[in-house]
Write a protein that binds this DNA or RNA. Sequence first.
RNA 1: GCGGCCGUAGCUCAGUUGGAUAGAGUACCUGGCUUCGAACCAGGUGGUCGCAGGUUCGAAUCCUGCCGGCCGCGCCA
Length: 562
Amino acid sequence: MKYQIEQLIAAALATLPPDILPADVPRPAIEIERTRDPAHGDFACNIALRLAKAAGRNPRQLAQAIVDTLSVSELVDKVEIAGPGFINFHLSPRAYSLELSRILDLAEAYGYGQRGAGERIVVEFVSANPTGPLHVGHGRQAALGDALAALLATQGHEVHREFYYNDAGVQINNLALSVQARARGLRPGDPEWPKDAYHGEYIQDIAEDFLARRTVHALDGEPVKATGKVDDLEAIRKFAVTYLRNEQDIDLQKFGVRFDVYYLESSLYTEGKVDETVAALVASGKTYEADGALWLRTTEYGDDKDRVMRKSDGTYTYFVPDVAYHVTKWRRGFRKAINVQGSDHHGTIARVRAGLQALGIGIPPGYPDYVLHKMVRVMRGGEEVKISKRAGSYVTLRDLVDWVGRDAVRFFLVSRKPDAEFTFDIDLALSQSEENPVYYVQYAHARICSVFRQLREKGLDYDRAMGEAHVARLTEPHEKALIRRLTYYPELLENAARALEPHQLAHYLRDLAGDFHTYYNAHTFIVEDAALRNARLTLVSAARQVIANALKLLGVSAPEQM
RNA sequence: GCGGCCGUAGCUCAGUUGGAUAGAGUACCUGGCUUCGAACCAGGUGGUCGCAGGUUCGAAUCCUGCCGGCCGCGCCA
């Protein structure tokens, strides 16, 4: 609908005589906005305000000239000039009727666009190291990343959800040593307890299963059977990593998040991609040796200092496989890559991009994109619970989902801007779980389903054709407000996808549910007048559809009864 | 010190990529179930959009400076 209004304005501008709008006046992009106040109609255009100065005319006068040349459309009832020179469009009942029909016809696909058709995007998120259970920060990332991926898919993008495992390096070695220590019966604090070892209870669990020669397996790999041989550190490492990956798989499955690809850092080494990348960087001439290490001149690409690639002990720093990994994204055909990460990692952005630039293989400077989110602080009993794997005392995602339910956690974690800090008060979530906003939205959905159940109990049927034919009967302000909100949905998806802001979806749902509840309380749907009754049922049926669609994008259920 | 992000009602947060009178929830006060589900609705109280300049028809939004908070600044990831 917005697009059609835009076309009307564009056509009018093109036919304006030069004495009103000289041909040499630069034309800004036409912006069509939703009005904030229903009295201003449905859409507003500020083009006259933006052209006024260059055209040497006052905005209202110019707006009048534009309105005079607008062609007639069945979608538009009335066009007005208001305020300093806005052109306001009031849509016709016909326009509303057509859009409600579209919602019911397209059903699950309503709101989808084709802006991203053919473009492959990889969204990387969670990417937790397999050194411990997922914590609530990972939960925020999972909720954000999954909703973002779903949002991009609505715009026609071919989206891949990807999880990158840092299953190589120092931390994994620490993990193996920790499990080994536990398997030998050591405890934290013992003289022989390894430095920097993980203390969490889960280490003990892994050690016990390793000694019991249990078999574990991760979603994408072969089962691994524990040897039970305490001196075989490599066997312990393999078992522990698979064990923890499986634990994370379980958590994510419970959270309703799936990935298309699990990418293992270790595979970058075994497949030679790390060596390949290092060789290419050396060949590029952007590296140098100093202090026994190999450095990359990342400062040439905006980093604030050069970075070590190969340490003096011969091993690589983490950012080398990171660069190699992003090369694979590019080579796998993803011309756009979005990484959802904690903002505490923002320092890595410059060096990864620098590495990709130094390779000179045509990757654009802004590749990959990042959505950074602030950490989640957890409060319990009025005190902050420290999030630390090494300390082993932190709230896991699994705990949270068990306590307040998957729907509430997902909705809650995605409902605010990623770059704002998030305080998750466990006591509050527990004690007021029924006041969580997610129930407000789900209740609207269940209530609509209930209306149709009531209809059947009264021996009536919903006649959609009759309803669509009488949408013009929906003249109450509450009805128009609900229709306006529903027809905004496609624009919302487009805006939220472009801005990479899934939280817009949560706020929209809250508003939409509010519009419905208000309407529900103000008017009875199941009335004697069949034409009006079916028109109203058409409206709430469309509302149910859009609520269900939006909830699905967030990974939240849309119950028919509560 | 340098860099990134944030600062909006008592509290938690929105603000449609610069628009019209800054909005929700919560808390507090008042009212609404003989009715399609009260897990709901209606009304009220509540603001120097951190501070000060600048840009323009127009600023919570963009620029500069300052104040305050979080994070990062390793041959850790």
